[in-house]
Amino acid sequence: MPEFIPGLVLARSFYMDVVRPLINVPHAAGLLGEGSEVLGFDQPRSTDHAWGPRLQVFVEDEHLQTVAAAVEQGLPAEFRGWPVRFFSWQTNSVRHHVEITTLESWVRSQIGTDPTAVELSTAAWLALPQQALLQVTAGAVFHDDTGALHRLRDLLSWYPRDVWLWAMASQWHLIGNAEPRVGRMIEAGDRRGSVLIAARIVRLLMELSFLQEQRYWPYDKWFGTAFARLDVAPALGPQLDAILSAEDDTTRIAAIHDALFLVAERHNTLGLTSHIEPTIDNFQVGIDDAVRPYLVINAGKVVEGCRAAIGDGALRDLVMVGTFDQLTHGDDALVNFTTWPQQIAKVYDRLLEASPSKR
């Protein structure tokens, strides 16, 4: 077995030493798309299937056949001890993995549209899985003659401001819904249920941290690893661990409050809304002036602060079910092998068009 080389390092060397000399037309190249190595999380274990030097080369349509032929004829059998031709699960065959394509075709294969040709609508943004966005914006660019690949990645690097605000409002809404259920489950004698809700709050807080730092989160296998690289992780991580490891209800609820205060204070540093002082008080049900003795943070004020800052009236009025990843899950099958993201975009579009703000 050859010595392990991180996939991004291997791909860059492979391009510079082998592939680039074979291409005599303007082009861009990089390692993007699916794969742990694109996210920078690959390990020696990653090499046990479909592993080797690979990258994408983007050329204009008229150069596709010429470049593909030159690459096919010029590639060596091995590079740094790794076979250049290895199994492809996409084609169920052994082949080289230098993907020759146009930038337009490739980005459509990743997110279902070409945002450089037609500006993404609000509905399209809401329905884009974050993993799919990472497949365009993560990885590395090795060469870009025209700058088109960099412009594409910049365009998709983060949500438009209104979409970002709505996503954060939705996340705080989800947190606000989950938090009082911890106390309710305890009161009902369902300790297991209260622990499950507490674990859900941990996940919601981790997701909120990605949103606050304007970072897309990956699919579940690398979600925790990616969270550990966030700026907030050294402070928030131990608090989340305390929630998960608490041996009694009082300790768990106190740890939830500590974590919520931290992310609420970080919200204020973003400057997206007016200052919202985090407070803990009894849960107000919102119906018939009912108040229950479960101490919760004032998440609703953060929700309303985010909502009030949204400029798009139709989006501001939309029920806060969240973006694709808040509404459902980013499983590989759902993201890369179905049209569910496109179907969900149509639903968002219909809901936005039906808004009173559009009348």
Rank of each mutant, 00 (worst) to 15 (best):
M1G: 15
P2N: 07
F4W: 10
F4D: 01
G7D: 03
L8E: 07
L10T: 02
V19Q: 09
P21N: 06
V25K: 15
P26K: 07
A29Q: 05
L31N: 04
E34K: 12
E37M: 09
G40D: 07
P44N: 11
T47K: 04
H49S: 11
A50R: 14
W51G: 07
G52R: 02
P53N: 10
R54W: 02
F58L: 12
E60G: 14
A68Q: 13
A69V: 06
V71Y: 02
V71G: 05
Q73F: 04
E78T: 15
E78V: 08
E78W: 01
G81M: 04
P83Y: 05
S88H: 13
S88Y: 07
Q90Y: 07
H97G: 07
T102Q: 10
Q110Y: 00
Q110H: 00
T113L: 13
P115N: 08
V118W: 02
L120C: 02
L120M: 15
A124P: 01
L126G: 03
L126A: 13
A132G: 02
A138G: 12
F142G: 01
D145P: 00
T146W: 01
G147T: 09
L149Y: 09
H150I: 04
L152T: 08
W158I: 03
Y159E: 12
L165P: 08
W166K: 02
Q171W: 00
W172A: 11
I175N: 10
I175S: 03
E179C: 00
V182S: 02
R184D: 08
I186C: 09
R192L: 14
I201A: 01
R203E: 11
L205S: 01
S209A: 14
Q212W: 09
Q214E: 11
R215T: 15
Y216T: 06
Y219M: 06
T225Q: 13
D231W: 01
I243N: 05
A246L: 08
E247M: 13
T250H: 09
T251Q: 13
I253E: 13
A254F: 00
A255M: 10
H257M: 05
F261Y: 14
V263T: 14
A264T: 05
E265Q: 14
R266V: 10
H267I: 03
F283N: 12
V285L: 14
R292Y: 04
L295R: 11
G300Q: 08
E304D: 15
R307L: 14
A308K: 12
D317W: 01
V319R: 10
M320N: 06
F324P: 00
L334N: 09
N336T: 05
T338M: 08
T338E: 09
T338Y: 11
W340Y: 15
I344R: 13
A345C: 12
Y348K: 04
K358V: 14
